[in-house]
């Protein structure tokens, strides 16, 4: 009895969580300029219209560049931090790790304006590079969260065995540790790519005149006639991120299974 009540609640909650995402394809394939019910008919013209918008293409290109670079850089930084925090005790550990993890809770607008002030003060022109600086900052805590669980479940005796057999710390890392945490690294790359691709505020403040995908989407919301195309674009983005996240989840689980840990579930 009790379990059924919980289950009912859980399903209602999932409907609440998915409500906007279910609506998205409905409007993307709806043959009307107005985003409202009732739906008028099936059409793929909003998807076709995406091909005719050069700003959109530029925004996609910019966003992909930013997302790939940020994912790689933040995962590299994440490897350092996750390895240090799971393997070593060092002075000021809590303080340093706290500062690195701070963007996880700090409102993004604070990160954005503080970087803006410093960059303009130093005379650095705003560009895609400045967006990457900000995105690496906010992606790194997520990569650390994922990579820590990969490093944590690592058996330290494997490492010691490698030392005993004459490997250097660097070759041990490359030959023993890296292959074991590889699934975690792939998962972290995918997650930080997804975060960066979807990030709006920092790009809005730091991109200068360059459009990124979210900045473009935000600007289009002002024109009601442009919204159906955005719905079509959104449908593609949602499908893309579900695919990416599924792959990330697959690798995350495989990584934990490979190094013999217990799956606690979830990305955080």
């Amino acid at each position: 009895m009790k379990v059924n009540g919980f289950k009912l609640y859980a399903f209602c909650y999932l409907i609440f969580l998915y409500a906007p995402i279910i609506l998205l394809p409905m409007f993307a394939f709806n043959d009307a300029t107005v985003i409202a019910f009732p739906l008028t008919g099936f059409s793929t013209r909003w998807f076709e219209e995406m091909a005719t918008q050069p700003t959109l293409h530029l925004a996609v290109k910019n966003s992909l560049f930013i997302a790939v670079t940020s994912a790689v850089l933040s995962t590299i930084l994440g490897i350092f931090a996750a390895r240090a925090s799971t393997r070593y005790r060092f002075p000021f550990k809590a303080g340093i790790m706290g500062l690195i993890m701070l963007p996880l809770v700090l409102p993004e607008i604070i990160v954005a304006v503080s970087l803006l002030v410093v960059l303009l003060g130093l005379g650095v022109p705003l560009s895609l590079m400045t967006v990457i600086l900000g995105h690496v900052l906010i992606c790194t805590p997520f990569t650390i969260a994922i990579l820590s669980s990969a490093f944590q479940s690592l058996d330290q005796s494997l490492e010691e065995a490698a030392y005993d057999l004459g490997e250097t710390p660097a070759s041990t890392f490359r030959l023993i540790i890296l292959p074991l945490v590889m699934p975690g690294i792939i998962s972290s790359l995918l997650i930080s790519f997804t975060i960066s691709l979807d990030e709006f505020i920092i790009a809005f403040f730091l991109a200068g005149t360059q459009p990124t995908l979210p900045v473009y989407i935000f600007s289009q919301f002002r024109f009601p006639q442009a919204v159906p195309v955005i719905m079509a674009l959104g449908t593609i983005l949602v499908c893309l991120s579900i695919v990416l996240l599924s792959i990330a989840e697959y690798f995350r689980r495989r990584g934990i299974a490979r190094s013999g840990g217990k799956d606690t579930g979830g990305f955080l």
């Binding site: 005790r89 060092f90 900000g134 790194t140």
Partner: peptide, 28 residues
């Protein structure tokens, strides 16, 4: 030393956070 190795390892992300997070927050 263990502390030294840990600090060396955490230095890249740590310095990044100090330069691009702590310093800007101080600036505002």
């Amino acid at each position: 030393t263990e502390g030294g190795s840990g600090l060396l390892l955490v230095a890249p992300p740590g310095l990044y956070a100090i330069l691009l997070l702590a310093a800007p927050l101080g600036t505002i």
